[in-house]
Computed example of a mutant assay.
Amino acid sequence: MKKLVLSILFVTTLAFIAFQIKPIKDTTKTIISSVKPVSLINSDGLTIKTRVQTPKGFKRVTYPKGSFQEYLRNYKLKAYGSKIINYDGSEYYWQRGHIGILDIPVPKNGLQQCADALIRVRSEYLWDTNRKDDIGFNFTSGHYCSWIKYAEGYRPKINGNKVSFHKTANKDDSKANFYRYLNLIYTYSGTLSLYHELPKIGDVKNLRIGDMLIIGGSPGHIVIICDESTNEKGDKLYMLFQGNTPAQSVHLVKNLEDHTISPWYHLEKGAIIPVSNYTFYDSKFVRFK
């Protein structure tokens, strides 16, 4: 009987202790899931600058009015939620890597791919600011083709890697002819020619709006810095937009690796930098002349 009483007391004691030390409910997941990331997107904004706010502690770097930097920062965007459209009118299969579509027409001829889109933006800036003499690019062969000579009627004769220019057309400095010139550049230039032609940026501390992250090749890829912000420590953040292959809507990309600052990016030379649906390895930067 004594053993029975002791057994009952022992079991009762164990039950009481077990009740007292039952596992505490894990609320960590609930707390984490309830914390929403701060959105930097203003869906009503219709320019790059007004579409995206700076992260806490950062402010935009100031550039002169009329500069290429301010031109890019204030580039017009289509309504928020607009989709990336291919040159043939179809929707691009990947619609989750952008937060804005630039108001740039996409030719139906299939040209104006990644490098071409940036060539167009740069050329239109030079046209709009009456710097037409500065519009010109190298072919992949290394031969320079300027808008001024094209407008005068000079056209390239291409035989393999040999290129010569001959006057075969009447003078025409119209905007329509300017876009025909750009189609020629799109055909014979690209990331490889830009990489060899343009000045390299050795120190990322010198990066600014208008500089480009590039892999020169066939295929290669290129994106352009379109906004810049800094904090009191001198840390820099950048935004990027790109064209793509196939030719499609030029778009402002998300930062899919760091949602806390997206669409802003930290940029480093030689780093692996994922940009939307492309990854840059051993990153290098160039600048328009």
Rank of each mutant, 00 (worst) to 15 (best):
R131Q: 15
R131M: 14
R131P: 06
R131K: 15
K132F: 03
D133I: 13
D133A: 15
I135H: 01
I135K: 01
I135C: 01
G136T: 10
F137E: 00
F137D: 00
F139G: 02
F139V: 02
T140W: 11
S141D: 04
S141E: 07
S141Q: 10
H143L: 09
Y144V: 08
Y144P: 08
C145W: 06
S146V: 09
S146Q: 07
W147C: 05
I148V: 14
K149M: 15
K149D: 14
K149Y: 13
Y150G: 03
A151W: 07
A151G: 09
E152S: 13
E152I: 11
G153W: 06
G153L: 10
Y154F: 15
Y154R: 12
R155S: 07
R155M: 13
P156Y: 09
I158C: 07
N159D: 14
N159Q: 10
K162I: 13
K162A: 11
K162E: 14
K162M: 12
V163S: 12
V163R: 10
F165S: 06
F165Y: 14
F165K: 01
H166D: 08
K167C: 01
K167F: 05
A169F: 10
N170R: 13
K171L: 11
D172H: 13
K175I: 15
K175C: 10
K175L: 15
K175P: 03
A176Q: 14
A176C: 07
A176T: 14
N177V: 08
N177Q: 12
F178V: 00
F178I: 01
R180E: 12
R180H: 13
R180N: 15
R180T: 15
L182E: 01
L184A: 07
L184E: 07
I185P: 00
Y186C: 02
Y186I: 04
Y186S: 00
Y188T: 07
Y188S: 04
Y188M: 05
S189I: 07
S189R: 03
G190T: 02
T191S: 14
T191V: 10
L192K: 09
S193Q: 04
S193C: 04
S193D: 01
Y195C: 06
H196C: 09
H196A: 14
E197G: 06
E197A: 12
K200L: 04
I201L: 00
G202A: 06
D203C: 02
V204M: 04
V204K: 00
K205V: 08
L207D: 02
R208F: 08
R208K: 15
I209G: 00
I209F: 00
D211N: 12
D211T: 02
I214R: 01
I215P: 00
I215N: 10
I215V: 11
G216M: 04
G216Q: 03
S218E: 14
S218P: 05
S218W: 13
P219I: 09
P219V: 12
P219L: 06
G220H: 05
G220I: 05
H221P: 05
H221T: 05
I224V: 11
I224C: 01
I225H: 01
C226A: 11
D227V: 07
D227N: 12
E228I: 05
E228V: 04
S229C: 15
S229F: 00
S229G: 09
